[in-house]
Design a protein around this nucleic acid. Structure first.
Lengths: 353, 353
DNA sequence: TTGTAAGCGTTATCAG
DNA sequence: CTGATAACGCTTACAA
């Protein structure tokens, strides 16, 4: 059985509060007693029991992370960033995969709440254009202001008007940039494979696509816009639809995985990329440079996003950050590769995977 | 503030023990009182506080998972399997990335221990050929038998002679199989890019490679064997070395990521694959079919591995499984693709990522 | 500066 | 079957 604070107190011949004070440093202890306590701690190899401590102080040194799927290279990077940031501070990470299902997300939030997680990083599926979800989002907002105070940081979206922290990237303008790039290559009939539409991120990317087309005097046809679920296979299926219904010369997918699926579909029709159809994605995941042709995309600093989200959260937890929610927008960057520009050749990028 | 058991007891006009008994079902309660309690629970939306409960019962409903890196597609799949298995039972998963560093692994184990995790799934870096690590491995073994009883399941390796549970794949015979395949293609001078040698998995794969060569009457030269760290970049660097030092016509890398790095190096020398040099890997991660040529490999059922490991662990936790450690070996399968066989053409596999 | 003691929300052991 | 009550290991007023 592991030694408890009592054992240490007995061994050092002091009271348990003195031991506690040595451990936490919250109150001064004379150097003589402190030494005795430290010796006892050492020889009993005592460590405070975080469960007991948590019961009293409502602190678990655990943060929850809820993402929509582990099967995403993008979130793998984000998770890594989070882990790196919090593990230095001795926090543990409880990960959950909502599997793109809001019911799961809600369940996990409750679990985290009753588990007294110290904070949550959340990629929410709730939609504040949907009346049904509004209550839930309000609940999330209250988590931060409650007596229990579980700060929440949103990933890739704000969590409602209440204004909790969030770290996002400029989806709309980035989507416009990549669409503009397609236009600059002479394309006019540009299709879009959108992501899950209950996610704001997807709507913003669609919006940016529209912006750029409108700007160029092109009226996007309804036919040009199809909706996937961010998986490669959905990109593949939707692309086959587009090939049947439209005569587009370019397609912009809301993420790289769908773009890669789209490329497969295009290939099956023996069309050349980019000569017959140009393809662009969003995220910049490592397979982009492995495929031929390599994929034009928007680089999103996923690792940084995780790291920053974690640091925002830690600041809230420590009470360093106060006041209203902060929204941090990360810079993205257009990366032109062979799928839109036959001249460009890029080597396999082997770093970071 | 969330309702506590006291609030429920007061609202229902019963004692807290009765409430507890209704919650846990550990002792019978008259239907009348049970109803009153259930109503109170409902209207106060009471959930037992797992922290407090854990303090008393030494149960946290949390399992720890320590892997060597998140940056691996392989472990992403494993994690998904674990998550799927345990979340049904209401367990949370604490993930840690040891970053291929034994010191981190040890630290995380301690953290998990004092956190009273109910169990641990561990891909350990400790080496029981290394005297320094033996004590640590003994500690791991004791974790399961201690008074605290934290069962541990090993991933990809057994955890020492003590014999805790483990789920592995038949690394040695699979490595022999892939090497034999290379031999059957007419290769004699076959190089090997080994993994981190403190990991048993790496040694077994090397062993299998030797087995097959010996069997074919080929004496592997020392030059032919180099050591990487499982990253693509290390495969790239080691392959360049091999190209300089040897005149091998084939290379077997201990995992796919290194194999892909090797392919890049081979390409840079303007050599053809598989005509000039054939390449094979191990794991079967999804990028294998995205690259050209696609990569011959050993399919390891990563998701299953995670799921099975989790179920073994849950059985230990529930006390269903008793007795000595069980070692489960998963079947692997040789997958021949274009990197060793010019005739073979495989399409992009879009499933499961 | 130090010690005593009252909880935190449960579970488990007793009597009743 | 039910209800007091004592732990579990710690933090934190409050007293000394």
């Amino acid at each position: 059985m592991a030694a408890s604070i009592k054992d240490v107190a007995r061994a050092a011949g002091v009271s348990i509060s003195t031991v506690s004070n040595v451990m936490t440093g919250r109150r001064p202890v004379s150097s003589e007693l402190a030494d005795r306590v430290r010796n006892a701690i050492e020889s009993l190899s005592y460590r405070t029991n975080p469960i007991a401590s948590g019961l009293k102080s409502s602190r678990t040194n655990t943060i929850g992370v809820i993402i929509t799927t582990f099967q995403s290279l993008f979130f793998g990077q984000v998770l890594k960033g989070i882990q790196d940031a919090v593990s230095k501070k001795g926090f543990m990470v409880n990960v959950f995969d909502s599997n793109n299902n809001l019911a799961n997300e809600k369940r996990y939030i409750k679990q985290l709440e009753s588990f007294m997680a110290d904070g949550v990083i959340l990629l929410s599926l709730a939609d504040y254009n949907n009346p049904e979800d509004i209550d839930y989002l309000k609940t999330i907002g209250e988590l931060s202001t409650n007596r229990k105070r579980i700060p929440v940081v949103g990933l890739e979206r704000t969590l409602g008007p209440a204004g909790t922290d969030a770290v996002i990237c400029d989806n709309r303008s980035a989507a416009a940039a990549v669409t503009r790039h397609l236009i600059s290559k002479g394309h006019r009939r540009i299709a879009h494979i959108a992501g899950i539409m209950s996610m704001e991120m997807s709507r913003l990317r669609l919006q940016g696509y529209r912006d750029a087309l409108t700007e160029a005097g092109v009226r996007p046809q309804n036919d040009w816009i199809v909706t996937g679920d961010f998986t490669p296979y959905s990109g593949y299926l939707r692309m086959h639809e587009l090939l049947k219904k439209t005569n587009c010369t370019a397609v912009f997918a809301a993420n790289d995985q769908m773009a890669i699926g789209a490329i497969k579909a295009i290939r099956e029709k023996d069309l050349r990329i980019p000569e017959d159809i140009a393809v662009a994605g969003f995220d910049d995941i490592f397979p982009d440079t492995l495929i031929t042709p390599s994929l034009t995309t928007i680089h999103v600093p996923a690792y940084q996003m995780g790291k920053i989200a974690a640091n925002m959260l830690l600041n809230r937890i420590d009470g360093i950050a106060g006041g209203p929610g902060e929204k941090l927008t990360l810079k993205t960057q257009l990366i032109v590769r062979g799928s839109t520009d036959a001249e460009t050749r890029s080597a396999w990028d082997l770093s970071n995977w």
